[in-house]
Simulated assay, not measured.
Amino acid sequence: MSVLRTHPSRTFLARAAVSGGVAVSSALLLSGTAFAHVSVQPQGEAAKGGYATVNVKVPNERDNASTVKVEINFPTEHPLASVMPQPVPGWKVEVTKAKLAKPLEIHGKKINEAVAKVTWSADGSKIGPGQFQQFPLSLGRLPEDADRLVLKAIQTYDNNEVVRWIEEPKEGAAEPESPAPVLKLSAAADDHHGGAATPATGDDQADKADKSEKDGKGDGHEEAADAGSTDTAARVLGVVGILVGLAGIAFGVLAGRRRSA
């Protein structure tokens, strides 16, 4: 009776392959769980004290149901006076406001109410299995005394299942099972519009021009000097050309007289 023996190296490789396959499968499952949740993503910069455009990204986590309703709740400790949704085909949107215990002052005006939540409801469209939908929002004015905004979300499926994304993530801790969307705020911008610095306006350029004229040096004087130099050179060249032409004529006349003689 013969006995089949497996080489130790082959046994090691087989075990490594199985272990690797299990690790990859686990990683894929964990990554799906970690990233398949409602999130908020700024389009550009979301600076403190400014305005920003964000996308609320809603993936569908179920294989046998579709998302038909999404609700985003805004923090009461950092109220936003302006929340404007961009229309999304196949969805109707409702903005709900609430009275403020302490009025806000924006651009010299007192604001007595702020947006409490925004709700999108399916109106001819759904977020099906394996799909996601983005809901754009314009937000402002962002708080100056916060590093982030926690926007709690509620997702409803057409089988009446409700998922509450309301657990606030803690810095340095593991991600909760149902984390709330978080909008991170960057340092305040000088223009308070949450974007990059804008080019100089016409007034700024005029001020620079006035300053240059007062100093007696600037783009205007340099351009005038260049233009004057160019004009003088053209005139000199013109005079030289005329003189050369007259000399040629005189030479031709003298040559003709010599031939006649």
Rank of each mutant, 00 (worst) to 15 (best):
R5N: 13
T6V: 15
H7A: 12
L13F: 13
A14S: 07
A14H: 02
R15N: 11
A16E: 12
A17I: 10
A17M: 07
V22F: 11
A23G: 08
L29Q: 10
G32E: 14
G32R: 13
A34W: 09
V38M: 10
V38P: 08
Q41A: 10
Q41S: 11
P42V: 06
K48A: 15
G50R: 00
A52F: 05
N55H: 09
V56C: 06
K57N: 13
V58L: 04
P59D: 04
N60S: 15
D63T: 12
S66D: 06
S82H: 10
V83D: 05
Q86S: 15
Q86V: 15
W91T: 03
W91H: 04
K92L: 09
K97A: 10
L100M: 08
L100A: 09
K102S: 11
E105L: 05
I106T: 06
G108I: 01
K109N: 11
K110T: 14
I111G: 06
A114C: 07
S121C: 04
P129C: 06
Q131K: 12
F132L: 13
P136C: 02
L137M: 00
L137D: 00
S138R: 09
L142W: 05
D145E: 07
L149K: 03
V150K: 01
A153Y: 01
V162E: 11
V163C: 01
E168H: 05
K170G: 02
G172I: 08
A173W: 09
E175D: 02
P176R: 04
S178C: 06
A180S: 13
A180R: 02
A180H: 05
K184W: 12
K184G: 02
A187I: 02
H192G: 00
H192S: 13
G194C: 04
P199N: 03
T201V: 06
D204L: 06
A206P: 01
K214M: 12
G216Y: 08
G218T: 08
H221L: 14
H221P: 03
H221A: 15
V236F: 09
G238Q: 08
I242M: 14
L243R: 03
V244Q: 09
G245S: 15
I249A: 14
I249N: 02
A250L: 14
G256F: 13
A261T: 04
